[in-house]
Design a protein around this nucleic acid. Sequence first.
RNA 1: GCGGAUGUGGCGGAAUGGCAGACGCGCCAGACUUAGGAUCUGGUAUUUAACGAUGUGGGGGUUCAAAUCCCUUCAUCCGCACCA
Length: 798
Amino acid sequence: MLYSFGEIEGKWQKRWYASDLFKAKDDTSLPKYYPLIEFPYPSGSGLHVGHPRAYIALDIIARKRRMQGFNVLYCIGWDAFGLPAENYAMKNKVHPRVVSQNNIKRFKSQIQRLGISFDWSREINTTDEKYYKWTQWIFLQLFKKGLAYKAETIVNWCTGCNVVLANEEVVDGKCERCSSEVIKKQKNQWILKITGYAQRLIDDLDEVDFPSKVKSSQINWIGRSEGVNIQFKITTGDTLEVFTTRPDTIYGVSCMVISPEHRFVSQWLDLAANPAAMRNYVEAAAKKSEIERTSLDKEKTGVQIEGIFAINPVNQAQIPIFISDYVLTSFGTGAIMAVPAHDPRDSEFAKKYSLPIIEVIKEAGPSSSACESEKLINSGMLDGLSIKEAQKKITDWLEETNFGYKKVNFKLRDWVFSRQRYWGEPIPIIHCEKCGYVPLDESELPLELPEIESFEQMEAGISPLENLTDWVNVKCPKCGAAAKRETDTMPQWAGSSWYFLRYCDPQNDQELASQKALDYWMPVDWYNGGMEHTTLHLLYSRFWYKFLFDIGVVQTKEPYAKRTSHGMILGENNEKMSKSRGNVVNPDDVLDKHGADTMRLYEMFIGDFESAASWNTDSIKGCARFLERVWGLLKLPTSDADDFSDGLKLSFNKTIKKVSGEVEDLKFNTAIAALMSLLNEIYVASKINRFELKTFLLLLCPFAPHISEELWERCGLKGLACTSSWPEYNDADCLDSSTEIAIQINGRIKARIVIRTDEIKEEVLKLAKSEPSIREILGNSKIKKEVYVPRSLVNFVV
RNA sequence: GCGGAUGUGGCGGAAUGGCAGACGCGCCAGACUUAGGAUCUGGUAUUUAACGAUGUGGGGGUUCAAAUCCCUUCAUCCGCACCA
């Protein structure tokens, strides 16, 4: 008897989605649980077998929580703005809305075939104006608080997408999405002041349960460094400020280096002896790409600003000044004091330009361990001090003499937020010559994305919206004069920065969600998503959430109490699945051939949830066979009972305990293994009572809900499996009355005996010694030590 | 360079100081079969005729006891990277 999964799965899915079974209730008196998966971008290629890994995992949690009596909010939506749909639209002359609607339809049917228990009544879509009304509203609040500003800065420019990119979107000097080369460009852009939250984004990580890798990546990305800003007087009368974490090395300074974009470069052109050389160098640096400029193996280049010098405040030494692109404009003050003796980069530079190398720290001998033994030398007032002491003394001195002050710097840059594209949320700002940037009145939200003929940029880097003169030309809301709308749109990360708040109250047209709903549901209890979002979506959404906390919209500091990450599913050849590699597995094929329950089990059984795993078509069979054998339970002789039989009581208790615990630790693979073992034992017993059958189906239900529900019904059990209570176990019943232990001599196993589980130590040792083979080996050698690990082993040391 | 991992049978992987290889795939043998890419039963780390010995990347250490803890080394992967 083969079970026909096709019919069964279709039948239950229809019933589930037609009912309120998985709908979250607005009853705030119930204990709540909010699991969250990253909502997908509905791409044209349909669902990938990687998507369901996360959906199934949290579906298991969601289903188990419902069985445990929680009010569960488990939702999905569509992150549907973005470039792929727009590019497809340009090529095929279809509106991106139509493109993404079709993709969503396909994604939805594929996901529903998996029997995931999403609350579809709360489905959201970032491109829906009722949704992006609130994305725009949040932007306006940021603007009003001065956290959204427009500024002419040097930005990352993707030469492929013709669009600016946030720092987080540049990977190895290339565009995160299309891998085209990224260059630096001076541009006027909307920017969000995420740097204002840098310290809190680090500090509040202490409050959340995230993988240490995620925490350290974010901390590393934010890149806090503590140091001192030091002011050097310049022979021109200017003051050059540098940032350093090593003020103690100030006597070792042999030159100053400023970045090619430093404001003093142009200021000093007329004063320097070599303006032509300076100009050449700066122009050459500007032409370099991001990769060229940051490449580490490249030789350092630079040019001296002749005739202008800096004065070292501690010893009045006259120091030459250089321009070099190894100094970054965007970090610190864009200028450094170079200490070649104690910084490898400065050392490389000094060697090339034959600058003095002044050692100011006596290197510790090879025998001494820490820098504790290192002492300052050649350093005037700092001589003989340790590095720590010297840092304190020089910092105090600099502050007293007004030559410097303590400073904390971050690597994190502000978030460049505008994109020169059509398919995104319009930025609700009007530019008036007289009044500057004027926000749209909130009553006019949503500012709808207008219909448009062509999605092509008329000119590289200019939004297609620029062509819609009727839409662009408006009256200034403040003074009534002629003004223009902002034509750039928001980046894809905007809509995804707050979507989990909307699930709490998705139909609300008065607020982004009601206070009551937010207070009840937030924070998200368990958020699972990809590592690739660690310094993008995960960081951005924490920033927005903190801002919403500050303006009183939400009541907790952090949006996600717990974060986990699933590993990627690779192709059979161990490589990332991609069309070009020809190793893509289509979930539809798997579903057609094996059904949803088998696919669900297989994706959870494939290996450690947090590690990458390669797809293996042969291994799916194991899960399919398991379900066939589950189906075969119908054939076993069944007796009425309201408790476990003596023969299976132990196994059932142990399995309930194991499955209950392991699911919480993301150990789905071993939880399923435990269910397989239990089934094997049931077959060895070759009978099952109704209570056992019921318990087995309840344990299986979150993993393979369709077959569990079908068998539940066929066995005449009451109600539905998925609305019944999660089974309980008794700790005392997880121990057998007798157990086999190993007997070791000097750590090597020599025999095994069966003892009563509650046997006292002395008796066990006596039994072990009297075991014939042990008695023989021991002979009359003297036992030095006897170790007994309860219910496990005995070790005699002779 | 900095940070984070990982390394166990033919394969995916179990075991967080206490009997290495659970569970599954594959493979081998048998049963049932006209048939088997179905199902069932048994077996399956290496070495040895056997008793036994060896075995968790390599080396060292702690311990009665180490895949697990410490030191060292090699290899692979991931993130960040001229951040002063």
